[in-house]
Simulated scan of single mutants.
Amino acid sequence: MAAVRQSIVRNAIGLGMFAVITAGVIAVTQAVTAERIADQIRRAEAAALFEIIPEQQHDNDLLTDTVELAPDPRLGNRKPVDAWVARKEGRPAGVIIPVTATEGYSGNIRLLVGIDPDGEVLGVRVTAHRETPGLGDKIELRKSAWILSFNGRSLGNPERDEWTVIRDGGVFDQFTGATITPRAVVKAVRQTLDYFRDHQQLLLGDDV
């Protein structure tokens, strides 16, 4: 009986150690993966900033000239985020606002929305998403030119009730077999324009 008890104890200790080691490996893997994903998002954002407002259109350090935005449901942010301000000869040339479209088909869609001082969209880029390959991923510029359809748009162009996809009576194309994704992005961009209208002085300062 003593031998049996010793065997049980050894097995229990072995299983316990295995569980601890496995949990540790999983935790480390998750931490490394999360850090890698965050770094990829930061790189994507940095590249997208200069696609939306090219360097020749501003003379300040776009990466460091920022303004902190409090959480707001229109931006989909649950914690403060930084918006980037572009300036030319000291005057604001535009602002790029990080936005989360929370109604994507497969989860949140991270966007950057550039807006000029007059409230017109300078450009929109997707920096992270989990939408269906071949369908919803057409929101990426490298997959289709759909995201460029926001360029030059504003709250009055189109009218508010047309700020949706064609299937819902709007002016923006949907994708064949994927309506939820573009619908979510269109809504997020419109809400960002609403936010800009209500917080223009915060975003661009007193020089507007």
Rank of each mutant, 00 (worst) to 15 (best):
R10D: 14
V189Q: 06
N151Y: 11
P54E: 14
V186F: 06
N157F: 12
P92Q: 05
A19T: 13
S7H: 04
Q56L: 11
D59C: 01
M17D: 02
P80N: 07
L112Q: 08
R74A: 04
G114C: 05
G104T: 13
G16E: 13
D137R: 04
I37V: 15
R42K: 14
R43P: 00
K138S: 03
G14E: 12
R42I: 12
P117Q: 09
T29G: 00
E45G: 00
A101I: 13
T127V: 15
V186N: 02
N60C: 03
K88A: 04
G170I: 04
V185E: 05
S154Y: 11
I109T: 04
S149M: 11
R190Q: 12
R10M: 14
D206N: 13
G134A: 07
G177Q: 03
V165T: 15
A101W: 14
V121T: 14
N11R: 08
Q174I: 07
V32E: 09
V20N: 01
V189D: 05
I53E: 08
P54K: 10
W84I: 01
G134F: 07
V124H: 05
R190L: 12
R78E: 15
V124S: 04
T100Q: 13
R142L: 08
V185I: 09
I52F: 09
I115N: 05
L62F: 13
E68G: 00
A31E: 13
